[in-house]
């Protein structure tokens, strides 16, 4: 069974790119348009990996990560956040919120797949 990935991003173009990239790599992808939508989908189902943007309307990525770590079904689920910030501050905040790793935008499709493989393990 292919691993299930939830991508959370308010940008339709980024969602499209991540979905195409990850489905081509054999993963089952579910999309959410912002943190609130993402959290509701996390509450409703189980995922092996979450890839999320941080800056989003309604609920930002950091809040969503904090909330998802409170869900018993998702403690320990790897969470990758997308960031354009190259400074360490946002990374430290996201990690404190419970993120596993990050991917710096702009990213190429291979690096997204590589990171998904890395955190999902073999």
């Amino acid at each position: 069974m292919s691993a299930k990935i939830l991508t959370v991003d308010d940008s339709a173009s980024i969602r499209l790119t991540t979905r195409v990239t990850l489905s081509n790599a054999g993963y089952a992808v579910t999309e959410a348009v912002d943190g609130l939508d993402g959290l509701n989908k996390l509450k409703a189902g189980e995922y092996d990996l979450v890839v999320t943007d941080l800056n989003m309307p309604n609920m930002d990525g950091l809040t969503m990560i904090r909330e998802l770590r409170k869900l018993p079904a998702h403690t320990g689920v790897p969470v990758i956040f997308l960031t354009t910030e190259s400074d360490g501050e946002i990374k430290a905040q996201a990690k404190a919120a419970g993120a596993t790793g990050w991917l710096t935008k702009p990213f190429d499709p291979e690096s997204l797949v590589k990171i998904a493989k890395k955190v999902l393990g073999k």
């Binding site: 980024i14 800056n55 935008k105």
Partner: peptide
């Protein structure tokens, strides 16, 4: 906040494509 988010997304996605 909304303006910042808009600019942020535009920058990030712009670089992607």
């Amino acid at each position: 906040d909304a303006v910042f988010r808009g600019l942020h997304t535009l920058k990030g996605s712009g670089a992607m494509f």
